[in-house]
Structures are given as C-alpha cells and as structure tokens.
Design a protein around this nucleic acid. Sequence first.
DNA 1: TGCAGATGGTTGGTAATACGAACTAAAAAG
DNA 2: CTTTTTAGTTCGTATTACCAACCATCTGCA
Lengths: 140, 140
Amino acid sequence: MPEEAHSADEEALVDALVQSAFVVMAVLNKLAADHDLSLTQLRVLAILRDRRLGMTALAAYLGLEKSTMTGLVERAEKRGLLQRAPHAVDGRGVEVFISADGAALAARAYDQVAAALRPVTGKLTPTEQRRLQTLLARML
Amino acid sequence: MPEEAHSADEEALVDALVQSAFVVMAVLNKLAADHDLSLTQLRVLAILRDRRLGMTALAAYLGLEKSTMTGLVERAEKRGLLQRAPHAVDGRGVEVFISADGAALAARAYDQVAAALRPVTGKLTPTEQRRLQTLLARML
DNA sequence: TGCAGATGGTTGGTAATACGAACTAAAAAG
DNA sequence: CTTTTTAGTTCGTATTACCAACCATCTGCA
C-alpha cells in the first residue's frame, strides 16, 4: 500500500531532484577524492570557512554523531587543514576552526566545483540558470 | 589563483545546486537508514528495479570498484533483497537481480522519498514545480 | 587448434566512516 | 553542595571502499 498517492508530475520532479543530487554528489565526491578528502571532510572545510564551532555543533551541522567527529577532526588536524583549541570560557569545550591551508584548499575546491558543474549548468541559458537558481532558493 | 573567474550568478546557482543536493541526500540517507540500508544499497535496489546486471556493470552504474560490489551484493543477498545467479552464457559472469522482497522495499522507499520531499517541494506552487522539473530535466 | 591476452569476479589487506554505549570532566541547576 | 546536564573522547563493531593479486573463462588471432 503506497504511503500516499502521487501524481505523475510529482514523480517526475522527485526523479529530477534525486538525479541531480546524485550528479552533484558525484562531482563533489570525485573532487574531494582528488584532494585526498572524503566528502564529509570537504563538507567540514566548507562549513568552517566562515565559522568556528564546537564538536557538537559541527556534528549537528553534518547530521552525525559527535563521536564520529573526533576521528574526523583529528585526521584533518593531522593534515594541517583544521585546528583545535580549548574553548576560552567553557573548560570542556573545544573550538574547531580552519587553518590557512584548509581555507586555501576549500577555496580551490570551491572553484573546481563550479568548474566541474559548468558542463551541466551550461546546458541552460543564463536566463534559465537564473530561474533555476531562484526556484531552488525558494524551495530551500 | 582561481581556476577561472566566475560571476555572482554562477556562484549562486552552484550554491543552490549543492545545497539542494545535500538536502535530498539527507532525506535519502535517513530513509535508507530507517530500512537498515546504506545509501549505496538503496541505490542498488533502485538500479535493479528494472534490470539485471553483472557485477562489473553494476559497479559502473554506481561509480565504484567491482571489488566493492562483492560484499555489498553479498550482504543484500543474505538479507534476501537481491539474488545472484550464474550467467546463462558466460561461465564467469554473475547476474544480480532484485528479489520480491527487495522490489517491495524499493517501492515502499520510493513512495517515502516522495513523501519526505513533499515539505520541500511543497514550498513551490504546482506551476513552479513543473518549471523546476523541466529545467532540471533539460540540465541532465 | 592452441595459446596470449582481455574480461568477470572474488579474496585479502588496509584505511576511513559512522554508530552506540560507556566514560571523564566541567558547567548549570536545584 | 549535590545532582544533573552538557561537551568530548574512547572503545568496539559493522560497513564502505580502495588497491593489488589472483583464478577462471572467454576471445582474438596466428
């Protein structure tokens, strides 16, 4: 028994969204791999581009358990992409923030994402691109 | 040095695409987890909904190494979601195909994806939804 | 026909990801 | 000043995924 009836239109939209998600993810994944990063690590760098966060907050952003973060951050720190420092006020807390190397890598990766997606986005005219962007923005 | 200059428009579109990809992925991931599946396993089920494939072909669809497939398919088979049979003609080959249970689960999951995305897609009017779908389809 | 090379899969080893449960230390609440 | 909550880490486990090495079979070609 289906959860709920759905129209052909809805089906088409869901398909399109899922498919485009996989395309984007494939690009991100490959790009991350080129830099010897996992997708998650790339996400961490992206998140910390303009923020400093504690482990728990970071985990929340990513939708992961905090216990997962320890190793993740540890490895990134060992590679000099992130840094950890005890929280100024809260004696338990740790603040994670991006290093210069990490920021540079994040910036480079960002450009590469745009470049890698250009063949895809390029199939639309500039007007269409703006319309697509607007629709997606409205949806999120 | 940036790979290539990019406009503010392009940046906005890339951001929107990436963000929507993560939203969709989060939905898929959670949904898969609800069924005790990984995202990859869910993908396998989706792919095999209307096909039988060999291990190598399946790996190609997923963009993974064939050695990765062995364990993946093995576990899914053990759970009765997939089946394996020697290829009729090619003595080396294995054909992987979905079982009745697997198909049922895939169908259920599909409905749930649509349902889970409804709060998101629902932010657009039906007309906008159609336009979005059209634009995404043109792009892919 | 017969053998060299290509192809399909598995195996084994390794690293990373992610979870949950249990634990320490510090902070907040009472 | 206890009790409880919160922040992070540690430990054990399963899964994902890769690579290299490895059979078995199949294909091309001499």
